[in-house]
């Protein structure tokens, strides 16, 4: 860890004013916002993140609330802790997939600290990204290469990978937000704007160090979840080696209705398999309007993983992801 300056701010404007001076809001940022710090501090201790200035946003009022909006949507403040969000009555009652995803992630201690906005910006757990002993990491040092592709990559991505990066997006919460069509509200130097979560994350391509659409000074103030249709069925299923405190090898988030024996309004996303939280329109198309039966689930899973590009150690993720989706679909449609 290098020496850094810490500024505690009381308003979004003050935060943005300071942060606008960073040349990038992506890897290499010289100024970072800090909320829970569970990910950022970890990477600062490893010298993977080396900001010279931290802007503590924890004292900005009103960002730690979960509120129902007049239009039926749910507004989640940037500073709402993961454990609070998982237990919020509105989330438990109407967005169970989000509650389940949050509770499957990390440990109780981390969930008590980690925030909604921080989790949207959670970095990968790629061991080669984390360890400066490896010179090659395009995400950490653009143009340096990728040590994972020919290295140990058991938990790396099989979807959205490029020749430059195969790092998995590690969040559980963000996978649930994908099927809830969350909207990210950003306040920046040029005012306020909204970004649908489906457009927020970038594929690694040739620029894996650019992970999302945030610009210098951009502060995520809150996330909104649109109201869901009546009687939706929801599930988050996470598969991993051990029963707790481990990132997903494959996870599935599903939201749907079953009306008249047909699946409607189907939303499917997967975690642990993509370079970003992975929405699966192919699966959704295969399921939409069909009767919930195993043959259909299998077709959907095959369609979703058709473009998977596994490497050697993570080849098992293709069949595992299919099993995960099929079981999630089976369970949610039986519920």
């Amino acid at each position: 860890m290098i020496d850094f300056e810490l500024t505690r701010v009381g308003t979004p404007d003050a935060a943005i004013q300071i942060a606008a001076a960073t040349p990038t809001a992506q890897q290499g940022a010289t100024i970072r916002f800090i909320a829970g710090g569970t990910n950022l501090i970890d990477y600062m201790k490893l010298d993977v993140e080396t900001p010279q200035h931290l802007v503590d946003i924890n004292r900005i009022p009103d960002l730690a609330k979960v509120e129902k909006q007049p239009d039926g949507s749910l507004k989640i403040g940037a500073l709402v802790r993961n454990s609070d969000l998982a237990q919020a009555p509105e989330v438990v009652a109407e967005y169970a997939v989000l509650s389940q995803a949050l509770l499957s992630g990390a440990s109780a201690q981390l969930r008590n600290k980690a925030t909604t906005s921080g989790n949207l910006l959670q970095r990968t757990r790629c061991p080669y990204f984390r360890d400066l002993a490896y010179a090659e990491c395009n995400k950490r040092t653009p143009g340096s290469g990728c040590a994972a592709i020919d290295g140990y990559h058991r938990n790396h991505a099989i979807l959205g990978v490029s020749d430059h990066c195969i790092a998995t997006h590690a969040s559980d919460m963000d996978v649930a937000l994908m099927v809830l069509d969350a909207v990210i509200h950003v306040q920046g130097t040029k005012g306020n704007r909204t970004i649908p979560i489906g457009e927020f994350y970038k594929l690694p391509g040739t620029t894996p160090h650019i992970e999302n659409s945030l610009e210098p000074g951009d502060l995520i103030t809150h996330v909104t979840l649109p109201a869901l249709p009546e009687k939706t069925k929801q599930i988050y299923l996470k598969l991993r080696d051990r029963a707790s405190y481990e990132f997903a090898l494959a996870s599935a988030a599903i939201v749907m209705q079953v009306q008249g024996g047909r699946m409607r309004h189907v939303r499917v996303a997967m975690g642990g398999v993509g370079t970003r939280p992975w929405r699966m329109p192919e699966a959704e198309r295969a399921l939409e309007g069909q009767a919930p039966e195993e043959r259909v689930f299998r077709t959907a899973a095959d369609a979703a993983l058709k473009n998977a590009r596994p490497n050697t150690d993570n080849a098992f993720k293709v069949p595992l992801a299919k099993l995960c989706m099929i079981r999630a679909l089976t369970t949610v449609t039986n519920a």
């Binding site: 757990r125 140990y152 405190y245």
Partner: peptide, 30 residues
Amino acid sequence: GLLEETVYDQRYGHPVNANYADYLVATHAD
């Protein structure tokens, strides 16, 4: 039986999972 293994990068000889999150010991839930 089910979890523990220290993995070394075959090219560089560094342990890859040298931390409490990536080296899996049994948790209470296990």
